[in-house]
């Protein structure tokens, strides 16, 4: 639904160059919720703004719903009629809502319809319908200043949906909201995704958002996508930074000469008593340093950090046993002088 190829954006200001995007290839499938996470300054906003060409990429292409927007754009900095038409079919939601304080809620939602040249009666019918959809039917005549943050974002979402878009872009749309409101907005986005088949590309710095609604995710660092995939793929990838972030388990080893292992359980394996089997089979004492169960994208996933006595070399066999049980095993880099990213394969040192 959204594809970017080699997307690069270099900002030049007063002789200084900042590479905000460095060859980003992104593929968002139709009907999925795709989350892009990364720290502040990673280039997330630049990426999403390049998708509807609010920002001109320095090079690379953006295709939305089969249409190459970069080809539409033309030369100058101004958007031509074709690009504007394409934009009107891509909804966008903002962190600070960006509602016009001079207009009522209903009138705010009618703005994109005015731009599309929809007649007055039809506009107000559509606006009221959308207000109903986002659960604010009684606020039509209120002004944005009279609404709470969550209500403002609902208006923002209704406005983004006015042009019947197939794609919704969301730049930190819940970052200005409290956790409770964040959940309700995410729920709304999820419902819209399911009910309308809306494809959603969202940017966030909160893992909680990805955990709650994303089907796929990408991690950005310094203008590059360093990890991407469906959330279940990521959770099943040894050493995945996103997986560890999505699902952190804490716990420090009790002393030197111990091997700390993170075990991730999915589906079937989650119900088997593997740890006690391990203990019995190899006659070793296992300490559980930390453990958590959680629902990620509607799937039950568990993670456990366990400690085995002895150095890694002495534990190759028990670890092999765990892997045979269909578990994902990551040897934790705790207390280790070697560079952090150490999965089982390269772990033998």
């Amino acid at each position: 639904m959204i594809t970017t190829k080699g997307l690069t954006k270099v900002y030049r200001s007063r002789g200084r160059e900042v590479t905000a995007l460095d060859g980003v290839d992104l593929h968002v499938r139709e009907g999925e919720v795709y989350g892009v996470v990364g720290q502040s300054g990673a280039g997330k906003s630049t990426l999403i703004r390049c998708v509807n060409l609010l920002e001109r990429p320095s090079s690379g292409t953006v295709t939305v719903a089969g249409q190459d927007l970069t080809a539409l754009a033309g030369r100058g900095p101004r958007a031509n009629a074709e690009l504007r038409k394409a934009r009107s079919r891509i909804g966008m939601v903002f962190q600070h809502f960006n509602l016009l304080s001079s207009r009522t809620v209903q009138s705010n939602i009618e703005l994109p319809l005015e731009i599309l040249g929809v007649s007055g009666q039809e506009r107000s019918r559509k606006a009221l319908e959308l207000l109903d959809l986002v659960g604010l039917a009684d606020k039509a005549k209120a002004y944005p200043a009279q609404l709470s943050g969550g209500q403002k974002q609902r208006v923002g979402i209704a406005r983004a949906l006015a042009g019947d878009p197939k794609v919704l872009l969301s730049d930190e749309s819940t970052s200005a909201l409290d956790p409770e409101t964040t959940r309700s907005i995410l729920q709304l986005l999820r419902d819209l995704n399911r009910q309308l088949g809306l494809t959603i590309l969202l940017i966030t710095h909160e893992m909680e958002v990805v955990k709650t609604i994303c089907d796929s995710a990408a991690l950005m660092k310094g203008g590059r996508v360093v990890e991407h995939g469906t959330v279940s793929e990521l959770l099943a990838t040894p050493g995945s930074e996103l997986a560890a972030e999505l699902f952190p388990v804490g716990g420090e080893p009790s002393g030197p000469d111990r091997t700390v292992v993170d075990v991730t359980f999915h589906g079937e394996a989650a119900t088997q008593p593997v740890i006690s089997q391990l203990s019995r089979t190899y006659n070793i004492d296992i300490s559980i340093l930390g453990a958590a169960m959680d629902t990620v994208c509607g799937k039950q996933v568990g993670r456990m950090r366990i400690e085995l006595p002895g150095r890694f070399e002495e534990n190759v066999v028990p670890i092999g046993f765990l892997r045979e049980q269909g578990l994902q095993v990551d040897v934790a880099p705790v207390n280790d002088p070697a560079p952090a990213d150490k999965s089982l394969k390269e772990g033998a040192k």
Binding site: L54, R78, L99
Partner: peptide, 16 residues
């Protein structure tokens, strides 16, 4: 006027 409002209008397909 907040530039975000200008961007919002542009994202809806609004011209100058």
């Amino acid at each position: 006027v907040d530039h975000g409002l200008v961007e919002a209008a542009q994202s809806m397909g609004g011209g100058t």
